[in-house]
């Protein structure tokens, strides 16, 4: 009798533990698939329409290439001061009379851009501020192997500094050269539209300091915003449209020479 109960008990124990282990395994196997299927439903649930959709307009007719934006960005975001790390920078294009194009951006334009081509050789010349284009179909987000860079629900491409493995694949995938490897944090770094500022109701640092208001920042969903007005009034263009990145930085007065 005693032994029988022991056997029974033992059997029960094995059955329960087998069920437990099996159940955990089964759950663990099903769970990832669930996660694969979920995001789409999730998107519908979080009411995205209530969130802003951030974007920027750049009016090239107003930009004077003073480089204040690049300088402010470095200060605000603690970007190393070396001349090869920039979240935003200004390029000066000079189309010469013979049709060749000269592009310059010494130190990203900080300290004001100076024309190096003599006046009589110039056909036309203009400034182009560059920054992360916050693509709707971001190649960098597509490429990141671990999900350390992503498009936030309000449309900003961000980097998860605690999760980035530093493989540089996103840097290779970005057609605009807007990303770099931060030598201090050793993770990919890029423009965040000053995410900490815009969530406090401030403007991004580059927009704040622009003396000619060449940069217009705002909510693309807000029909009353300056940005929407800018897009409605001016014919705008995005950079490298053939790559189908659907970027959210819009340029007014963009010449075909700009790459």
């Amino acid at each position: 009798m005693g032994t029988e109960r022991k056997v029974n008990n033992r059997r029960k124990f094995f059955q329960t533990s087998a069920a437990l282990v099996g159940g955990t395994l089964l759950y663990a196997i099903i769970k990832p698939f669930e996660a694969l299927a979920q995001p789409k439903e999730e998107e519908l649930k979080t009411d995205k329409a209530n969130l802003p959709l951030w974007g920027m307009g750049v009016d090239l007719e107003k930009c004077i290439g003073c480089g204040k934006c690049a300088e402010a960005c470095k200060i605000e975001n603690k970007v190393p001061k070396e001349p090869f790390y920039f979240r935003t920078w200004v390029e000066q294009y000079t189309v010469k009379n013979d049709g060749t194009v000269k592009i310059e951006s010494p130190n990203g334009g900080i300290g004001g851009l100076k024309q190096s081509v003599p006046d009589e050789e110039i056909f036309k010349s203009f400034m182009v501020p560059k920054l992360c284009n916050h693509c709707t179909k971001a190649p960098c987000v597509q490429a990141c192997p671990v999900g350390a860079t992503f498009i936030s629900p309000d449309g900003v491409v961000l980097v998860d500094e605690t999760y980035c493995i530093g493989c540089s694949y996103c840097i290779q995938a970005c057609p605009y050269g807007a990303r770099f490897m931060n030598p201090i944090t050793k993770v990919a770094d890029k423009c965040t539209f000053c995410y900490h500022r815009i969530n406090e109701g401030l403007q991004p640092a580059c927009v704040e300091v622009c003396p000619t208001n060449a940069r217009i920042f705002g909510d693309l969903r807000d029909k009353e915003s300056d940005l929407v007005n800018f897009l409605q009034v001016n014919p705008t263009q995005v950079l490298k449209p053939h790559l189908n990145t659907h970027s959210r930085v819009f340029y007014n007065g963009l010449s075909s020479e700009v790459k």
Partner: peptide, 17 residues
């Protein structure tokens, strides 16, 4: 929200202005 750490959004807000 997607294939990333949702808390990373808040991390990005933590910087000093």
């Amino acid at each position: 929200y997607g294939h990333y750490r949702a808390n990373a959004i808040d991390d990005n807000k933590m910087s000093t202005s």
